[in-house]
Design a protein around this nucleic acid. Structure first.
Length: 509
RNA sequence: CGGGGUGUAGCGCAGCCCGGUUAGCGCAUCUGGUUUGGGACCAGAGGGUCGCAGGUUCGAAUCCUGCCACCCCGACCA
């Protein structure tokens, strides 16, 4: 139950609107709003290197929370961490045909290993005599370098399964980049597992897409749709790709995580065979799965508003901020007494609290700033509160405020954080529900996409040609074929040919 | 790779079309004072190779040529 019954007065609304001038209005220019928000919430900025971002401490703190929780989930499902090289010999890439095809166009390549001062003595140039025998690719993903190692690790069924995850950076030389959503270098985790049987590998692939989905829903408070990728959208070198797809507030889809069943493709490419229980030689079965710093983009675009970020409490580096309101140092001292007590009470319950007693900004400035940064709960304590033994508690998700007795705070906050977590999930869920459409006519399909976007459930004849044509004409792609999409006779939205189930279409990031 | 844009103080920008004293504004910074319950105010101060290289001109941030970098919009992608 939400106890924040009071609604905003008109005056307060005007005050909020005034504050919004610090951000581009979301309705006016979504892309600009997103960009502004990333910069102004101090999450990241563009760097001197084209397409590469600097992740600033506050943004990185959110990533660390994401990492910590995912790492816990991976370990709970039997995985261990390891680390493989950043560089991949070029020849490794040519071993798996589809894989090269998929990544060749976006690889950064190391060709030399030394610099020297140029003839003028002022600048520095690549030393032509230091050319590498074989060029090194900066990993866009690590299947090849990892399977090359697995070859040495696997001889018998007793060596399986191998369940390894790696936290790393990868480079994909994208044409166009956007902070967090697509950068030339990004941080991610990539799981690479090896199994004795096809069934076990498929089970692993499913297990990990489920881990991602529950992370998205429980921690990020974002509902996702799990499904199969169509052949066109499949990972280069995979037999099957499972994905989770989330709907952003502008009606575009964001692929938030993928899990690939690689079959025996990489084992064959790197000649990784094992002796099974019956003494027969066979190739090893593989999976790989990953999520990236793109999840930061999903959190931003999934929840944020015109006042700034709205962080799910479970991933907020600061869950509660305490702001003192004071006129002089005596007042601050007595407020601090209460504030520090509350802070330590909350910290004992595992809640992260920041007491911002800096006197170089006014309370109003701090209110706006922590709102911009998406801190879920704000406590304000002023002389008035001190007198009444109360604090003012404001929640970021719906901007409502409540005055609560000091002695109730430490039992009130944990419930409030849960409430906020649940509320922003529900909000995102409702948004998705309102923006998911079953469409049967081509003209409706086109106009829906143009008018408001969203998820479109429509019939598809199952061919790559149709998918390609739909993409050409509308920029919409099949995001996934949902696992839970029921059997239903229908006709392809484009070709009119028979279809057995609906698939999920959307324009995407 | 195609289209558009930008480059001027630490940051954000104006000035450029139509060349002319000392290149301006906001934020930030420093000093002093008043403030602090929703991005405070007043007064003063400091801070500039105008992206780089040429050219035109008595004179260039401004006009011309070339180069570089970044951003935005498309084709490609987590």
């Amino acid at each position: 139950m939400c106890i924040f019954a009071q609604s905003l007065t008109k005056l307060k609304q005007i005050a909020y609107q005034k504050m919004a001038k610090f951000l581009t209005n979301r309705e006016e220019n979504y892309a600009q709003w997103y960009n502004d928000l990333v910069l102004k919430a101090d999450l990241a900025e563009n760097s001197a290197v084209r397409g590469c971002m600097v992740i600033k401490p506050y943004g990185y703190a959110i990533w660390e929370k994401i990492q910590a929780e995912l790492d816990r989930l991976f370990k709970a499902t039997g995985h261990v961490n390891a680390y493989f090289p950043l560089f991949i010999p070029k020849s490794f890439f040519s071993k798996e045909a589809a894989h090269v095809e998929g990544f060749a166009k976006e690889c950064a390549v190391v060709t030399h290993y030394r610099l020297k001062t140029d003839e003028s003595g002022k600048g520095i140039v690549v030393d032509p005599s230091a050319k590498l025998e074989e060029e090194l690719i900066i990993r866009p993903t690590s299947e090849t370098i990892i399977w090359n190692s697995y070859k040495n690790w696997i001889q018998s069924y007793r060596d399986l399964p191998i369940l390894i995850n790696q936290w790393a950076n990868v480079v994909r030389w994208e044409m166009r980049t956007r902070l967090f959503l697509r950068t030339a270098e990004f941080l991610w985790q990539e799981g690479h597992t090896a199994h004795a049987t096809r069934e076990e590998a498929i089970e692993e692939t499913e297990k990990m897409i489920n881990v991602y989905a529950s992370f998205a829903e429980n921690s990020m408070a974002l509902p996702v749709i799990k499904g199969y990728k169509s052949e066109n959208e499949r990972f280069a070198g995979a037999l099957d790709t499972f994905a989770i797809e989330a709907l952003m507030q502008d009606g575009k889809a964001l692929q938030a995580g993928t899990s690939h069943f690689l079959g025996q493709n990489f084992a064959k490419a790197f000649d990784v065979q094992f002796t099974d229980k019956s003494g027969k030689l066979d190739y090893v079965w593989a999976t790989s799965w990953g999520v990236s710093t793109r999840l930061m983009g999903a959190i931003i675009m999934g929840h944020a508003d015109n006042n700034g970020l709205v962080l799910p409490p479970k991933l907020a580096p600061i869950q509660v901020v305490i702001i003192p309101i004071f006129k002089n140092s005596e007042q601050l001292a007595s407020i601090s007494e209460t504030a520090i007590k509350i802070k330590s009470d909350l910290e004992q319950k595992g809640i992260s609290v920041k007491y911002d007693n800096r006197d170089n900004n006014t309370p109003g400035w701090k209110f706006a700033d922590y709102e911009l940064k998406g801190v879920p709960v704000r406590l304000a304590i002023g002389p008035r509160d001190l007198q009444n033994k109360t604090v003012e508690i404001a929640r970021r998700d719906n901007l409502s405020k409540e005055t609560v007795p000091v002695e109730k705070v430490s039992e009130f906050i944990p419930k409030l954080l849960e409430d906020i977590q649940a509320n922003i999930y529900q909000k995102a869920y409702n948004f998705r529900k309102e923006n998911t459409f079953h469409v049967d006519k081509w003209e409706d399909f086109v106009s829906k996409l143009d008018d408001q976007g969203g998820f479109i459930m429509a019939h598809w004849d199952g061919t790559a040609e149709t998918e390609e044509k739909i993409k050409d004409e509308t920029k919409a792609t099949i995001r996934c074929i949902p696992f839970d999409s029921p059997d239903e006779e229908g006709k392809c939205i484009y070709s009119g040919k028979p279809s057995r189930r609906r698939v999920l279409f959307a324009r995407s990031y």
